[in-house]
Design a protein around this nucleic acid. Structure first.
Lengths: 124, 124
DNA sequence: AGCCGACACTGGACATTGTCCAAGTCGCAT
DNA sequence: ATGCGACTTGGACAATGTCCAGTGTCGGCT
């Protein structure tokens, strides 16, 4: 556990938000000015490998990192402003996929992204 | 309807696959050598706006384009080799999201990505 | 037929995101 | 103190996507 990794972990624990790698880097720099982008990417990659953090692909541009890796959940994304909320749907989508639709795959995980407009963008 | 747009549309109709923008460009060049990347991107963007083609974000690296826009479906992705299949789960995930979990959003769409290993990668 | 204007296309520069690598630095065990 | 190994750094590079100015093409009008 080096100073750099601690800073990255702190950034992610800080708020429960969904930051891009660049945003993580920006916030890490605020705490430890000499941290490099490469280190942030390395550390994020390690956290993902360790299962401490999830990569989410709600945004097509950049990966986002979700520190809430220990409780399964899905995401609700505003199509306009990009705001992201964690949601917990009822039911289990895995059981909605019949064997005949699995094409011999070993299905282990499912990722659900709801899209819509957040209250602010609905009003606007 | 210009020659360039026709070529892009033909590439997508050709097989029912999930191509990246670059793959679309490569195949378009085979049919019309002087087509430029910018035109492919523009045309893909227009097709998406028209609802003729869907952007899918199964891959974190590049957007893929799915010409099967008229029947709702979801995707099953091999975590190792990236192979993508269209699947049709039973049930409707939209109804699995209670009002209390919508945070005032106007939810209009849901995207489900199953992940696992395809038969080849399971064997290997 | 010839001109004109609108629109699409081209090619390349640029931006963003992410990966890689060689060299430097730090801490720890000896 | 010294040496080893792991971590970090900074920058180069790669992949993907966007933007823009210049050029070409096509239809309509005279």
């Amino acid at each position: 556990m080096t100073a750099q990794r601690r800073v990255v972990a702190e950034v992610l624990d800080g708020d429960h938000v969904h930051l891009t790698a660049d945003e993580v880097h920006a916030r890490a720099v605020a705490k430890l000015p000499e941290i490099s982008r490469a280190t942030v990417y390395n550390t994020l990659g390690e956290l993902v490998s360790l299962g401490e953090v999830l990569e989410v692909a709600t945004d097509k541009r950049a990966k986002r990192y979700d520190p809430n890796a220990h409780r399964p959940h899905h995401h609700l994304v505003c199509a306009q402003c990009g705001a992201i909320k964690d949601v917990h749907p009822t039911g289990n989508p895995l059981s909605d996929l019949p064997t005949s639709e699995r094409f011999g795959y070993t299905v282990s995980d499912v990722e659900v992204t709801y899209r819509g407009l957040c209250p602010d963008c609905t009003a606007a």
